[in-house]
Amino acid sequence: MASVSLRRLTLICLRVSNLTFGGGDPTMAALQSELVTRHGWLPPDKYVLVYALARITPGTNILAFCAGAAWQLKGWPGAILAVLAATVPSAIAVVLLTAGYESLQHNAKALAAIAGTLAAAVGMMALSAWQLLRPHMHRRRALRALLLAATSALLSYRFRVSPIVVLGLAALAGFFWRAPEPA
């Protein structure tokens, strides 16, 4: 394995995480290209393990990936710096955008523009739900996927069951009721 520089590792996480649009998968692909292919720091089998575990780590997948990959290469200092580098610049941009939204609350033209962005956000949330469902929409798995999602929506919206309880019940259901293997 090539020698790893903590500074360069942090800068790669900073650049790739904060300048790549499109969510976790394009960002992890860009990090794979940097860490595995270009620098040869992370062996492909370790990349696959970190990638798989990042998908099942709670929270934001890409931050878990940065933490896991950097921990493999540079231990805890690497993991902490990688997560800070991947998060803080974008978080500052989010705060500036939010402050801008608040300061424009009394401008009629700005409010009209903001109303457009709020409608777009609804479309994005619907898309987020669809993107979670889509990988499970195969013929043999679709019924189970739709049943789990619809039951959860119903429990939450109609019966006001706490989201945490719904997620716990889903975990229990999934542990005992596995999806059929794709044909």
């Binding site: 609804v122 719904v166 019940l169 542990f175 009721w177």
Partner: peptide, 25 residues
């Protein structure tokens, strides 16, 4: 399978949370 089911339930929860936000927007 348990984690996959939590993700599917989350899709349902996102739909449930989107409804009131859609009413507003």
């Amino acid at each position: 399978s348990a984690i996959q089911s939590v993700t599917l339930a989350a899709a349902g929860l996102v739909i449930s949370a989107t409804i009131p936000l859609a009413r507003d927007a």
